[in-house]
Amino acid sequence: MTFTLKIWRQSSPSEQGRFVTYEANDVSPGMSFLEMLDGVNQRLLRSGEEPVAFDQDCREGICGSCALVINGIPHGPDQGITTCQLYMRRFSDGASITIEPWRAKAFPILRDLVVDRSALDRIMQAGGYISVNTGGAVDGNVLLIGKDQAETAMDAASCIGCGACVAACKNASAMLFVAAKVSHLATLPQGRPERARRVNAMLDAMDREGFGSCGNQYECEAVCPKRITVGFIAKLNHEYLRAGIVESGLPNEPESPYAESS
């Protein structure tokens, strides 16, 4: 197979970027999208040119490194996968493919297709944890956690921090990312003591980092490789309201020590 690639090239954060056209030849349908790019880079290298920079590591859809906007869609045309899980058999021979980096104010471009996503780490540092010390934890079976509850927490916890949700959102909001972490921890009894502080701190950090607000368009859900649903944004909003009530000192729902199955 052969393809015509229009790839965003930008040599540094301050430089003006531009699209450059490359031909990808000798592509087999069983090659992954990133292997196809490897091929392009090998050819560039052999002619002494600088290869196209892109982030990648695990190449199996779990580390969240790979991050390409392919024909306008973060992670490409298929739902529920990352860029590295996309295979060339998905494209028709001879097609023209546009490849860009994530575009968001909070994600400055470092080089070519590589962006700086450390803003997501700073949101996590603001409150995306349970503050327990190492040592002295009670037996794991002391807290009984219903299977459904555990499954819901796991659904939310599956987020790989790739930032596709931000890249897809017109407002470059990180709501889905924050919602996933807040929901994961608020669903489990261990995460309950800090839930009010957590949601406020994480949302504040999101604003501080220059992410926009949620416009309820749900583009985030459509591109999320881990199929995190916008239902968790509803959960986030609920947590936020609840935090307001807690802070105002009004009576709140009683806390059960167990997270019962619903």
């Binding site: 944890y129 349970i130 327990v132 190492t134 040592g135 934890a137 009670v138 037996d139 794991g140 079976n141 807290l143 009984l144 956690i145 219903g146 299977k147 509850q149 555990a150 499954e151 927490a153 796991m154 916890a157 994961h184 921890l185 489990l188 261990q190 995460g191 167990y258 199955s261």
Partner: peptide
């Protein structure tokens, strides 16, 4: 054995049985 307890305390959503146990 301590590791699993620590991980539960950190909020790791381990698979559970219907009865709520790990």
């Amino acid at each position: 054995t301590q590791i699993v307890d620590q991980c539960v305390a950190l909020g790791i959503p381990f698979a559970r049985e219907y009865g709520g146990q790990l």
